[in-house]
Amino acid sequence: MQRFETRSAANAALRDLRQQKHHLGGVPTASPTVREWFDKWMRIAIVPRKRPRTADTYRTYIEQYIVPALGPTTRIARLDPDRIRRIETYVRGKGLSATTSRNAFHYASSALEFAVREGVLLINPASRVEPPLAGVPDLDVFTLDDAVLLLRHLMNHPDRALWLTYLLTAARRGEIAGLEIDRVGEVLDLSWQIQRLAYSHGCTKPCGFARAGNCPFRKLQMPNNYEARQISGGLHMTRPKSKAGWRVIPLVEPLRTVLLEHMDSMEPNEWGLLFAGRHGRYGYATPPDPDRISVEWPKLRDEVFGAGRRVRLHDVRHSTVDLLYLAGVSEDLIQEIVGHSTRSMTRAYKSRSDAVRLQDAMHKLSGILTQPAPGRKLEIDG
């Protein structure tokens, strides 16, 4: 039996029940728990419709933030605004960012909105709560001088082909790691990327393996329209997440010469990949692992700039966008080069520390103000 602290709270709950009976034709006798409902939401609404990596992100948020904050055994009918606000408190209490708490709130709200559509709830309790404010990203991006310094360093680096491709194309980590030789010519065809996908158990009885990847009946859960082809183990070639990501960009100097030299000197591999490597005691060929590339990047960055810089590999995309703006490339072409679906997304990648272009703009403004029009004498009061 549910108890209320005040008569007004009891009356409000009674009104909700009456509305629920009116709209839904009845009142559920038992509400699912937070754990039960979010598991069902993942199974029905997320896994069959979202890309595997996206579904993994949802699952992480649910397991690590949302369910612990709301309480796994709490009935979702008992969720109120105060309990919803616990999500932000819980996330920030772990020392995580405001953006993480905002994401967790929106994922929880989506799951509860699904409960409304399913007739399990009358009202989404998260709709009564203001979402957490997103934090302001504090990105460290390369300036023009930084990029030139890195470019010079890479010209004599053993892996210069890999790193220069990141710097000069603004392509994503998996797009470069997954480049196949037959997609490199006068242009770079970025219509595929390499990703590590997580398997799930496919056994009906416990197979004895803790890791789903070792299960004899392992399977990949993905939407019907998701394209993936296995390379090795959990590494798969997949399509970029949006049609805008399926792009072809011209291959120009100095990257063209660097890649041609790389292809002439590289050893063939069974996957036809441009950046397959040799690792291990016996130097066997392995496909490029995006996670390994992310580990190697800080080593290169610190080698060039010393400790203290925070430029992540993905942030190199921001730097390349800055350089394209600086070079005077039109915004619609920048959008096409980096594979953004909207111009607003491209602008969001542009750094706010573009001192060179800002200085040039102010010089142009000053020139307009200080040079009189033909036949007129410039007069400045004071």
Rank of each mutant, 00 (worst) to 15 (best):
R35L: 09
R35C: 04
R35G: 05
E36P: 05
E36L: 02
D39L: 04
D39Y: 09
K40I: 11
K40F: 12
W41I: 03
M42Y: 09
I44A: 12
A45C: 10
A45P: 05
A45V: 14
I46H: 03
I46R: 05
V47S: 08
V47F: 09
P48K: 02
R49V: 14
R49H: 12
R49S: 14
K50V: 13
K50Q: 09
R51F: 10
R51T: 03
P52G: 10
P52D: 08
R53P: 13
T54K: 07
A55R: 06
A55S: 07
T57I: 06
T57E: 05
Y58F: 10
R59S: 12
R59H: 13
T60L: 14
T60G: 12
Y61T: 01
Y61M: 06
I62H: 04
I62T: 07
E63D: 12
Q64F: 13
Q64W: 13
Q64S: 12
Y65T: 07
Y65Q: 07
Y65N: 04
I66V: 04
I66C: 05
I66R: 15
V67C: 01
V67T: 04
V67D: 00
P68W: 11
P68V: 03
P68R: 04
A69F: 10
A69Q: 03
A69P: 03
A69Y: 10
L70V: 03
L70I: 01
G71C: 01
G71D: 00
P72M: 15
T73R: 15
T73P: 15
R75S: 08
I76M: 02
I76K: 08
I76R: 03
A77S: 09
A77R: 06
A77F: 02
A77K: 04
A77W: 01
R78K: 15
R78D: 13
R78Q: 14
L79P: 13
L79A: 02
L79Y: 01
D80W: 14
D80T: 12
D80H: 15
P81V: 07
D82H: 14
R83W: 07
I84D: 00
R85M: 10
R85P: 03
R85E: 07
R86H: 10
R86M: 08
R86I: 09
R86W: 04
I87F: 03
I87V: 05
E88D: 10
T89Y: 13
T89G: 12
Y90E: 01
Y90F: 11
Y90G: 01
Y90T: 03
V91H: 03
R92W: 09
R92T: 11
G93P: 09
K94S: 05
K94I: 00
K94F: 00
G95K: 09
L96K: 15
S97V: 08
A98D: 10
T99G: 07
T100W: 00
S101P: 07
R102P: 02
R102C: 05
N103S: 13
A104P: 06
A104S: 08
F105R: 00
F105A: 00
F105Y: 04
H106V: 07
H106L: 06
Y107T: 09
Y107L: 15
Y107C: 11
A108R: 02
A108L: 04
S109T: 02
S109M: 12
S110L: 11
S110G: 07
A111H: 01
A111T: 03
L112E: 02
L112G: 05
L112Q: 03
